[in-house]
Design a protein around this nucleic acid. Structure first.
Lengths: 237, 237, 237, 237
DNA sequence: TATGAATGAGAATTCATTCAT
DNA sequence: TATGAATGAATTCTCATTCAT
C-alpha cells in the first residue's frame, strides 16, 4: 500500500548481494555465533549480526525466524563442530593412560581454540538450556567419547593400571570441568588473584596440572579406603 | 500485547515506604543480586529490580549511580559473603586429608546453596571482569584459603600422605572447577546426556566423585613419573 | 519469539504448481477475500494471502498490481456475487407483501451466508469508498432490486395494501440495515447485552422481527398523520 | 549502561511538557480515539497518536500498556460518552409515540455527531469484540434505554396506540440499525447509487423515513396476521 | 508464468536514565 | 530521601514490494 515509494535503487550491481542462499545463511550464522559468544543472548544485537554478516536484517528472520531460534541454530552449530572434532580422535589406538592424556589435551586445546563454545554454553545455562531442549538435534549432541572413555577405563582397570569403579560420565565431566572453568573464569581469577592466567606459561602449567590430577586420580593405589558408588549415599542432602 | 499499565496510583500515605536509607539500599542490592543472577547483566531490567525491591527506580540511581555500578556492588557483595563463609572453616584443626575433604565439601555446598554466585561470576567473565577490575575491594576477594591450603599441602607432604610439588592455587582452582562446572552447566549437561543431574542422588554421586578425584590425586604414589613444575614447559603453545 | 523460518525448500518438481493462470488468479482472489474479510485492509497480510492461495507472492503482484488494487478486485468480486444472486429472485411473480417478505428473507440469508460481504464493506467504508470509486465496474454494483422494489411498492399501493409515498431506495436501505447491523455488530451487541445473539433462536427472532417491522410499516393505516417527502424539511440540520 | 550519553537537553522550559498526568492521559486517549476511528485498529499508528497527543510515545505505554489496551480504553471511553448522553433523555416525560420519536432522533443525531463511535464499533466487531469482552466496565455499556423503551412500549400498548408483543431489545437494535447502517455505509451507498447521501437533504430524508418506519411499525393495526414470538420458530435455520 | 531471495522503510515496544516536585 | 512522570535512543520484528533467475 504505497509504503514510501521506493527509490529507484541506484545501487551499482557490484555491491548488490550475490544470490547465494547458502552463503547468506552461513554468514549470518557465523556472525551470530560471534555476537552471541561475545555479548550473551541478552546483550547480542540483531543489527550487529546482520551488519557483520553483510546481510539485510530481514534475511536473518527469513532464514531463522527470530533471535531465539537463531541462538538455537548457533548452539547446534557449535555442538556439531566439537562432535566432528571428537570424531577425529583415535583414543583406543593407544594405551589407556595415553588415551586419557590425549583426551585431556584435546579438551583443553579445543576450548582454548574455541572460546565461543564456552561463552555460548554459559549463556545457554543461564537460560536453563531452554533452546537446547527445543532442539531436534539434541540427541546428536551427546558425546560419543563417553563410550570410548568407558572402554579405556575398562582396559586400564583390566591391565591393573587404573583404579576400578570409575564412572565414565563423571570422569568426562571432570576433565571438561578442569579445563572449562579455568578458561571460562580466567578473567575473574586473574583479577582476583592479581595474576595473569592467560599467559602461555600459566596455560602450560594448567594443562600439566590437569593431566596430573586426572592420571594421578586414576592411578591411585587401590588398597586405600575410598568413596564410590554405594558409599556416595553419605552425601545425600 | 497486554502488559502492565499505570494504575491511577492512589497509594495511601500509610503504606508509603518508610524513610530508612539502609533498608532501601539493602533491598535494592538484594533485588539486584537476584535479577542479575537470573538474567545476566544484559538481560537484567532496572525496572524489575526497583519493583522487586519495593523502591522507586530513582533510588537505585541515587544509591548506586547506574546499572553497571550496581552490578559491581552486587559482585562485591557476593564475594564478601563467600569470604565470610570461608572464615568459618577451621581446616587446620584436622588432619590434612580431612582438611582437603572439608574444603571440597564446603565448596560444593556453598555453590549449591548460592547458585547466584555462579551465574554472577559467569556474567562477569562474559564482560571480561570489567567491573571487578574497577572495584576497590578487589584485594579482599582473594581467598585466604589459598594460604591455608598451602599449609595443608605442606603438612600432608611432610607426613608422607600427599604427593609433593602441588601448587595450592592450581589445586584450589581445580576443586572449584569440579564443583562449579557441574552446577553451572547442569542444565545443558542434563539436556545433552538425557539424564537429570539435579537430583539428590546425582548430586551425591558428584560430590563423592569429586572427593575421590582430589584425594586420589593427592595420594598418588610418588614413584610414578609425573609432569609438574619444570616439565610443564612441554605444554607451552 | 518463535516464528516460521525458511526451510531448505526441497520441494520435488512434481508438487510444483501447475501453470494454470486462471486457477492461480482465482485462488489468489479467494484467499484475498478471506484475508481482507477477516482482518480488514490494514490488518490483512500479503504473505498470508499468497500462502493460503498456494501461490508465490510475486504472482499476486503480477496479477493484481498491489495490495490496494487486489482489495478493489475483491470488492468487485463480492459485489458481483450478490448481484448474481439477486438476479435469481422473482419478486414480481408473487403478491406485493410476499415479494417484500422474500426480499427481507433473501437479504438476511445472503448476509448470513456471506459474512465476508459485511466486513469487506465495513473496511471499504472505513476507507471512504476509495477503492470502489476507482472501480470501472461501479455502475454494475447498483442493485437492480431498487427498480423491482419500486414496482412492488406501486402495485401494493394500487391494491390498497401498502401505504403510499415510500421511497424504494430508503426502504431498500432500511431492509439492508435491519439485517446488516444485527449481523455486523453481533459480537459487540452480544457482549454488551450479555446475550448470545448468534444462536439459531436469536437469529430466527431477529428475522421475524425484521419482517414485522417492514411489513408493519408498509401496511400502516393511511389516515394517520405521517412525515414523508415534503415534510422531511423539518429535519434539515 | 551508558546508553548514548544524553545531550544536555537544551530544550527551553516553555516547550517542555507540563507535569499534568491527567492532561497527558486525556490527550493520549483523545488522539487515540481519533486515530483508531480514522484508520481502524490495524491501520492506526502509535506514532501518530503520540505525536497528535503532543506526548512522548513512551507515555502511551506508561499509561495504557500497549496498543490493544489503549484501544480498549478508547472503546470504554466512547461507550461512556454515549451512555452519559442517554442519561439526559427524558423519554418517559412525554407520550409514548413522542418518546419513541425522540429516541430515534437522538440515536440519529448522536451517530451523526460522533462518527468515531461507528467506526470504532466496526473495528471492534471485526475483532470479534475481543477488547470489549476483556473490559471490566462491560456491564456499564448495556444501555439503560432498553428498560426505558420497555416501559414506553407498555404504556403505548396500554393506551391502544402501539401494537403488543414488541421486544424492546429488538426494537432498540432496529432503531440503531436504521441510523447506523446509513451512516456507516454512507460512502459505499453513495458511490454505488451514484447519489451523495451525505447532504443535509439526504440526511433529513433519512431521518424522516426512519421515524416513519418505526412509528408506522408500532402503530400497525393489530388485527392483521403477524409473526412474533412463538411463530418465529418458522425461521429457525 | 513462476519462484525463492532480497530489500528498506517502518512498526510496536523496551530501556536506562533524568526531571520536577 | 523519595516519587511519579517524562524522555529519546534503541531494539526486535514486520511489511509491502522488487530482483534475479
Amino acid at each position: 500500500m504505497a509504503r514510501a515509494a521506493k527509490k529507484p535503487a541506484v545501487r551499482p550491481a557490484a555491491t548488490r548481494r550475490a544470490r547465494d542462499p547458502e552463503r547468506t545463511r552461513t554468514s549470518i550464522l557465523d556472525a551470530a555465533t560471534r555476537e552471541f559468544a561475545r555479548h550473551g543472548l541478552g546483550g547480542a544485537r540483531v543489527d550487529r549480526i546482520a551488519e557483520r554478516a553483510g546481510a539485510n536484517k530481514r534475511m536473518l528472520y527469513y532464514y531463522f525466524g527470530d533471535k531465539d531460534t537463531l541462538f538455537r541454530a548457533v548452539l547446534e552449530h557449535v555442538y556439531g563442530r566439537i562432535r566432528a572434532a571428537e570424531q577425529q580422535l583415535r583414543l583406543l589406538d593407544v594405551p589407556p593412560a595415553e588415551g586419557v592424556r590425549r583426551l585431556v589435551e584435546f579438551t583443553w586445546q579445543y576450548y582454548l581454540a574455541h572460546p565461543e563454545f564456552i561463552t555460548l554454553l554459559n549463556s545457554e545455562n543461564l537460560h536453563r538450556a531452554r533452546h537446547l531442549r527445543r532442539s531436534r538435534h539434541i540427541g546428536a549432541m551427546n558425546s560419543p567419547l563417553i563410550a570410548t572413555l568407558s572402554e579405556i577405563l575398562e582396559r586400564g582397570a583390566a591391565a591393573g593400571a587404573f583404579r576400578r569403579g570409575v564412572d565414565p560420565l563423571q570422569l568426562y565431566v571432570s576433565i571438561a570441568a578442569l579445563a572449562y572453568f579455568f578458561l571460562s573464569n580466567n578473567q575473574t581469577l586473574s583479577a582476583v588473584f592479581g595474576r595473569d592466567l592467560a599467559t602461555p606459561a600459566a596455560r602450560a602449567e594448567r594443562l600439566a596440572h590437569m593431566i596430573d590430577v586426572v592420571l594421578g586420580y586414576l592411578a591411585a593405589a587401590p588398597g586405600r579406603p575410598r568413596l564410590t558408588g554405594a558409599r556416595a549415599g553419605r552425601y545425600l542432602d
